[in-house]
Design a protein around this nucleic acid. Structure first.
Lengths: 348, 348
DNA sequence: TCGAAAATGGGTAACGTTACCCATCGCGCG
DNA sequence: CGCGCGATGGGTAACGTTACCCATTTTCGA
């Protein structure tokens, strides 16, 4: 290891000698601990200011808190994650906590490595966004550090869950399409590589709800699901597959906007007009969905609220709460120009 | 701080007693240091395996390396950043290094805080993506830890720079529009909040190049620049402003795809067809640009390569290199359907 | 006025790891 | 046969911070 040229870091000892107090005193001031007179507090604060002291997070990690929360995201491509992180950062700002992010990737191995990386760095709490691992594995981590899981409907006594009511969301979409007069409504879902209980995964819930609503309207024979990925390529491939089927769907409900964008591309390449020949709906209401050229009907999830709530729950857990909390937010349907009545609608 | 229920962490001492060697020996094995016999190495490895030992990054941070590199991103909304991070992660995989990300935000204060957070966490190297701070401030950090800056054309003796040749890229776009027959070509640039030397900032280079190429073609009187932001809103507002001007442009070159998406929306809302009434070009060639409904002419930057290179340079610096490197990648023009000859093209 | 309790300040041993140094052993060479 | 050196292994003092405990001073009620 090369020795860097910079001056030695300002430590608590430097502050102590400057303020003519003990290092213990400085530490107490920093932590707002008991046993400090206002006068001493003032002197120490001044010394901190003058010397530009910043706590050494790694050293703190050896003893106390790091004032760091770790966030694991599957990837950075979904703009919805940006909302979550913004909500979290907002909630954390002013509390002295800093968020660090790591990429979980798409395999369980990579995800485990990412989680371990956070544990090894001694973060005070971890937010897991849409993890793949089985609940038992998450609970293992939750035994070591406070955990909040976002995007899974888990009911665990050991960590909190924040999620969108995907059942209601999917219902809104499918009902909307049925009300428009569609019967051959297909769905594109996500191929998971997960060992979680299927019923806890948002894409499974969306797909199951799609099937249930179809059945409830006597459309069980029209159920058609393509299992690809919640990504542009996945949407494209899924749509191609669905459009090749003998009874071509008149509407496709993609489980995520990203996939819906791929559906739009596939429709275009197949020479189908949207919504003339095919209605398309997504989920997440990403900003792009609102662009006039796209104008995608979608489900809005309050990502900022979800991220903020996750941050609050994490802080509560760090402060000592041990009872589990589940927080569900309500989705809302945003109708745009990608959905309309099917062209061949038989007059009622 | 609550004491967590989990078992005590496995430490180097546990491994040592299991393998019947000293902690020093274990440390040596971990670091591949000199003075270990193959036999001992094997024993220690076995013990590590059996106990599931993982190095405690925070403890390492007190003495040696953390095997962590920090990445500061302005935000998570630009999918181009995902490519950079993927490139970096790829390059780092197998080397034992882990990347952690922090959000820099849009103010210099937030950016400074984000950088400090990385320094305080004792990362071995830092990748700064499109930072706002003045070079002197970056060099201050670079004195303490290896730094690579991505997206600025900086020439500093103290850190490496990885960037796209924005001059060539902007030239490609403007020449393309001129060749199509456009004369009233406008540009949307980014309002920076930066104290960096303007000539080092990519958006300034793109804007300056736009002006230069226009002048070189005798079009100095047609130069029109809207200074908003590289974001959808920014593109929308900028386009509105440009389209209100007396001599309405027939083409708009937005400095980033995100802004170009906003331009498309503004054109739509103004009742202008693209490319019939207005040609639009972007920069970055994000995936969305390729969607048939958008089909945006853009400049492709090899983000994965840039991120990978940044990772390599960072590792080299961590290994001891102190001479500065600048790495520039070549952009390429991707022509799509958002650009065409202007409608009122006078026959030549 | 005395004693006890509260308020205030500091000493010190950890936390897990690594860098530096020293001790031992065996072997080859003069 | 003795010496020196390379190979191998370990002891130990940091790194910067905090938690626990103890010492001293101040306050206040009886």
């Amino acid at each position: 290891m090369v020795t860097r040229g910079g001056r030695r870091r300002v430590t608590i000892a430097d502050v102590a000698s400057r303020a003519q107090v003990s290092t213990t005193a400085v530490s107490k001031v920093l932590r707002d601990a008991y046993g400090v007179s206002p006068a001493m507090k003032e002197r120490v604060r001044a010394a901190i200011e003058e010397l530009g002291y910043r706590p050494h997070a790694a050293a703190r990690a050896m003893r106390g808190r790091t004032f760091t929360v770790g966030v694991m995201l599957p990837h950075l491509r979904n703009p919805f994650f940006a909302d979550i992180v913004d909500g979290l950062t907002d909630e954390l700002s002013g509390t002295g906590y800093q968020a660090i992010l790591v990429q979980g990737g798409s395999t369980q191995k990579a995800e485990k490595a990412a989680m371990d990386a956070l544990v090894d760095r001694q973060v005070d709490g971890i937010l897991l966004v849409a993890p793949l691992l089985a609940r038992a594995r998450l609970e293992e981590v939750a035994r070591q550090v406070p955990v909040v899981v976002l995007g899974r409907h888990e009911r665990s006594p050991h960590f909190d869950a924040v999620f969108d009511d995907d059942e209601t969301g999917a219902e809104l979409v499918v009902n909307h399409l049925i009300e428009l007069g569609h019967r051959r409504i297909a769905h594109i879902t996500h191929q998971d590589n997960s060992t979680a209980r299927p019923g806890d995964l948002l894409h499974v819930i969306r797909a199951d709800t799609y099937r249930r609503v179809m059945r409830e309207h006597g459309l069980e024979d029209e159920i058609a699901v393509a299992t690809t990925y919640y990504s542009e390529e996945g949407g494209y491939d899924g749509a191609q597959e669905l459009l090749r089927r003998p009874s071509r769907p008149t509407a496709i409900f993609a489980g995520a906007d990203q996939a819906a964008f791929g559906v739009l591309a596939a429709a275009h390449d197949a020479g189908l007009s949207v919504p003339g020949d095919l209605s398309v709906a997504g989920y997440d209401n990403t900003k792009l969905a609102a662009l006039p050229n796209i104008s995608l009907t979608s489900i809005d999830q309050p990502g900022v609220v979800m991220g903020g709530t996750a941050g609050r729950l994490l802080r509560e857990r760090i402060e000592g709460r041990t009872t589990a909390v589940r927080f569900s937010v309500g989705p809302s349907l945003i109708v745009r120009r990608s959905t309309a009545a099917p062209a061949d609608l038989p007059e009622a």
